[in-house]
């Protein structure tokens, strides 16, 4: 093996890709070539020194146990979360049941759930009756108003006729008076 190849092979010396045959060739060459042996020693020296590292025990610490316990309570168990949300969920459920007029009746060993309670149906019926009565009353009132209006018009007509009659009579009276006056004046002239 020529020395020119060792530079490349020394670069690969620590690689797991270097196959055993080439590694053996390189090692053979290194034993025979002092220069290449020195180069390999220079590479192996620091590796050897670094591998002499003596483990330092880690100082005592909490190992994030408080964090673990806190997050586990919030995440994995989740019971605390359930208890926190339970009253809210119950309120929401009650509101929903109320809005849907849900009624639950336990009869003859069976639970009956119905939406829209009978009481509300009664109220609805009564409201309908009330509306019907209201409409009838409104109609009656309108008819009464029409009748009053007709009566008023009749009265006005009667009044107008009476007035005209009265005016005619007054006119007759005035005429009679005028005739009387002219009679009186003609009599005076005649020498009565």
């Amino acid at each position: 093996m020529p020395c020119s190849r060792t530079d490349h092979l020394l670069r690969e010396y620590f690689s797991e890709d270097l196959n055993s045959v080439v590694r053996a060739e390189l090692e053979d060459h290194v034993t025979a070539c002092p220069d290449c042996a020195r180069q390999l020693r220079e590479l192996l020296g620091p590796v050897h020194e670094l591998r002499r590292w003596e483990e330092i025990p880690a100082p005592r610490w909490d190992r994030h146990m408080p964090l673990f316990r806190r997050e586990r309570h919030a995440g994995a168990g989740g019971w605390r979360l359930v208890w926190q949300w339970l009253p809210t969920a119950a309120c929401a459920l009650m509101l929903g049941l109320m809005l849907l007029n849900t009624s639950m009746v336990y009869q003859a060993g069976a639970l009956e759930i119905s939406f829209g309670s009978p009481a509300m149906a009664v109220v609805d019926d009564r409201l309908e009756d009330f509306h019907r009565l209201q409409n009838e009353e409104r109609q009656q009132f309108a008819e009464m108003l029409t009748r009053f209006e007709q009566l008023r018009m009749q009265d006005l007509e009667t009044m107008r006729t009476g007035y005209e009659l009265l005016a005619d009579r007054d006119y007759e009276t005035v005429r009679s008076l005028q005739q009387l006056a002219s009679l009186v004046s003609s009599t005076e002239i005649a020498g009565w």
């Binding site: 020394l10 670069r11 690969e12 620590f14 690689s15 220079e42 590479l43 020296g45 620091p46 590796v47 020194e49 670094l50």
Partner: peptide, 14 residues
């Protein structure tokens, strides 16, 4: 990665 390792070893030469 190989080059970095090789260069490092050369720099750490004793």
């Amino acid at each position: 990665a190989k080059t970095r390792f090789y260069t490092a070893l050369k720099k750490m030469r004793l």
